[in-house]
């Protein structure tokens, strides 16, 4: 069946909203399968990426309307993360529209049915993922499971509560996410191809020597790769995934 849609619904608003669509017999396509969580704030982007990697074509996260979250700010957390993920989806040409956050109240059965139907159509139009998508999704998963981006995301309420500029914060998040994507792409390449030097990896990924070198350094600091042989210059430093030589 195409498209396969996973809908994460919070226990308090969206899930009963979906029930209400059924109770009122508002029909929607069978493509959407609901996974219940207590709060939309439980939805880790890693879970969303896991869904895509397992074969989903679109993922929706549904929570309570702003200000009505049963857990005060869980829905905002969900929105912030999915927004960032959406940005990366667009940047890497995976189709940001495959991801959506929606607020559904328990009484909004009609909205649930309409939004679901519309989303299924949207994803149908985007079509299936391309072959190479899986690799990017894997890198993204590493990125969102990585400590650095999670620390930055987790600092949101602290930062915003203490008056940080929301837009600036978002830009910073994007920047960190992109840097991390680069880093994990390098890691993925080394995982796939074994020991390579900076110069080769840079060429393969279309990155500059300098940024690839920085990725090597970061990966080494985090203990994810080890340093191998050294050639004529620093861009000839070889790296390999830790413990794999």
């Amino acid at each position: 069946m195409f498209p396969k849609i996973i809908t994460f619904c919070c226990n308090w608003c969206a899930y009963p909203g979906a029930d209400f669509a059924g109770i009122s017999h508002f029909k929607y396509p069978v493509n959407a399968r609901i996974i219940r969580v207590m709060c939309s704030g439980r939805v880790d982007p890693g879970l969303v990426l896991e869904a895509f990697i397992s074969g989903a074509d679109g993922v929706m996260v549904m929570g309570c309307h702003p200000g009505e979250c049963h857990y005060e700010h869980g829905n905002y957390e969900a929105e912030r993360r999915i927004k960032l993920l959406r940005y990366l989806f667009d940047k890497y040409e995976l189709g940001g529209k495959r991801l959506r956050v929606e607020w559904i109240a328990a009484s909004e059965g009609r909205k649930f049915a309409e939004v679901t139907a519309d989303f299924v159509e949207t994803v149908r139009k985007i079509g299936a993922f391309q072959e190479k998508a899986r690799e990017i999704l894997e890198v993204m998963k590493d990125t969102f499971y990585g400590e650095r981006l999670r620390l930055a995301l987790g600092a949101a309420s602290r930062a915003l509560d203490s008056g940080a500029d929301g837009e600036k914060y978002e830009e910073t998040l994007k920047k960190i996410a992109e840097e991390e994507m680069k880093k994990y792409r390098v890691l993925q390449t080394l995982r796939k191809e074994g020991e390579l030097c900076v110069r080769v990896v840079a060429e393969k990924l279309g990155l500059s020597l300098r940024e690839t070198f920085d990725c090597f350094l970061d990966l080494k600091h985090e203990g994810l790769i080890e340093e191998g042989d050294i050639g004529e210059d620093r861009y000839m430093i070889y790296g390999f995934v830790r413990g794999e030589r």
Binding site: V37, C39, D44, E77, R150, G154
Partner: peptide, 14 residues
């Protein structure tokens, strides 16, 4: 605890 799970989704070290 109210069982929302926000902490689990947020924990940098998982």
């Amino acid at each position: 605890c109210w069982s929302c799970g926000i902490c689990a989704a947020e924990c940098p070290a998982r």
